[in-house]
C-alpha cells in the first residue's frame, strides 16, 4: 500500500526542465525538447549546441520524464536509442547519479539541460539554474 502511494505521488509530481541561469533560452516547446532529448536536433532555439543530461535517481524520475515527453516506456526509449546510437547518428544524453549532482552539473555548464522533480528545487538552486519548462502527467 505504501509502495503504491509513493508511486502515485511520483506520477502526480511535476517535472521541471532546467538550464544554467545564464542560458539565453527562457522557454522550449515540447517538440524542441523532444528533438533535444531524442538526439534529433541537439541545440537550443538560438542554435547553440546543447548537452542533455539524464539522472539515475530518484527512482521513477527518468521513466516519468520520458513517459510525459514521448509517451514511451524506458524500454522503447532504449530501443529507439539503440538504432540512433549504434548506427553512429547521435549519442544519448549523459547520465548523472542524482538530482543534486545534476543540479551542480547544470550550474557549472552553460550548455547543459536536465530535469528534476519540481519540489526538489531549493531557493538556492533557483539562483544557479533556470526552469524553462514544466511537464505534468
Amino acid at each position: 500500500m505504501l509502495f503504491s502511494g509513493a508511486a502515485l505521488a511520483e506520477k502526480t509530481k511535476s517535472i521541471s526542465v532546467i538550464v544554467h541561469a545564464d542560458n539565453t533560452t527562457d522557454t522550449l516547446t515540447k517538440k524542441q525538447l523532444i528533438d533535444l532529448y531524442m538526439g534529433r536536433y541537439v541545440a537550443f532555439p538560438d542554435n547553440q549546441s546543447a548537452q542533455p543530461v539524464d539522472t539515475l535517481t530518484p527512482e521513477g524520475l527518468k521513466s516519468q520524464f520520458y513517459k510525459r515527453l514521448v509517451n514511451m516506456p524506458l524500454s522503447r526509449v532504449n530501443a529507439y536509442w539503440s538504432r540512433v546510437k549504434f548506427t553512429g547518428r547521435a549519442t544519448p544524453p549523459s547520465t548523472q547519479d542524482s538530482e543534486q549532482v545534476l543540479l551542480n552539473f547544470i550550474a557549472n555548464n552553460p550548455n547543459a539541460i536536465g530535469y528534476v522533480f519540481s519540489d526538489s528545487l531549493s531557493l538556492k538552486d533557483k539562483q544557479d539554474v533556470k526552469v524553462i519548462m514544466e511537464l505534468y502527467e
Binding site: 530501443a79 539503440s82 538504432r83 549504434f86
Partner: peptide
C-alpha cells in the same frame, strides 16, 4: 567506415533490440 544507408532499415538491421 560508416553504415551503408541504402534502405530505411539497412543501418540497424543487425541491432535486434532496435525493432
Amino acid at each position: 567506415r560508416t553504415l551503408l544507408d541504402l534502405y530505411l532499415l539497412t543501418e540497424y538491421r543487425d541491432i535486434g533490440f532496435a525493432y
